[in-house]
Design a protein around this nucleic acid. Sequence first.
DNA 1: TATAAACCTATTATACTGGAAGGATAATGG
DNA 2: CCATTATCCTTCCAGTATAATAGGTTTATA
Lengths: 136, 136
Amino acid sequence: MVVSTKGRYALRVMIDLAKYGTDAYVSLGDIAERQNLSEKYLESIIKLLVQNGLVKGHRGKNGGYQLSKPAEEVTAWDVISITENDFYVVSCMSPDAPKCERIDSCVTLPMWKEFSKEMQAFFQRYTIAELAEKEK
Amino acid sequence: MVVSTKGRYALRVMIDLAKYGTDAYVSLGDIAERQNLSEKYLESIIKLLVQNGLVKGHRGKNGGYQLSKPAEEVTAWDVISITENDFYVVSCMSPDAPKCERIDSCVTLPMWKEFSKEMQAFFQRYTIAELAEKEK
DNA sequence: TATAAACCTATTATACTGGAAGGATAATGG
DNA sequence: CCATTATCCTTCCAGTATAATAGGTTTATA
């Protein structure tokens, strides 16, 4: 699978926050209920979004979550590149991959690199705002 | 990872066969040695290629493998879509996925579908012949 | 007929995914 | 000031895929 369940759920969380979190914090329970997803699992996902600055959490009564930035400024790429642990086309393109000796002679590397760019560009064309608007 | 080690190795096998298998069978041992890969692991990979009609094997002395079709007619997509077990953008797009109830209301599905097409088209633009030629 | 090769069947270690459980901490309303 | 609500944190678990390894069987050729 190119994009895991985690990534899909993360997108749904972001879209939910874009719709319901404009003037109040949205509790995880509300999101889980609306989206019909496990609250406990969402917890681990939204944690990633908080840690990476896409979402801010507020504790206590009437607490919850909100987008840190306007939904127009967040792309699908921003979201799934966080949740997908190793979102690289091939393992040798991961920053912490051992240096490959075939790097200069590898005939497929240019192909992977080109695809990598296309993939990023593709998902950067979709903003959370756009996606949220479709969900009327 | 979008494309696994298995997929990369499979491509290298195909490229190797395109280069060295034009007028004789190429033994797995030779491929493994040239490509510096585990022969035993390659065995399980080339098996997939045989089963899916991309490669034909010939037993016995002086046996080995050859491409079933001209390298010009085989694309990178043909190869990696075989080795990558679930090469779908998201799990709900797998043919044996349980039917999703959100299918009509899902705002992200069109995005996944579009990407799926782009991905396939991208890898179909690369033929084994082209890739093999670069490897001089 | 020995040999070289494909072919077949298991097994293994490691890691990731999807998810559940339980508790600690913090902010708010009454 | 205190109970409530909600985030935050750590740990665990089952299932499955990946990347290999091992050892044996069959087939064709020189």
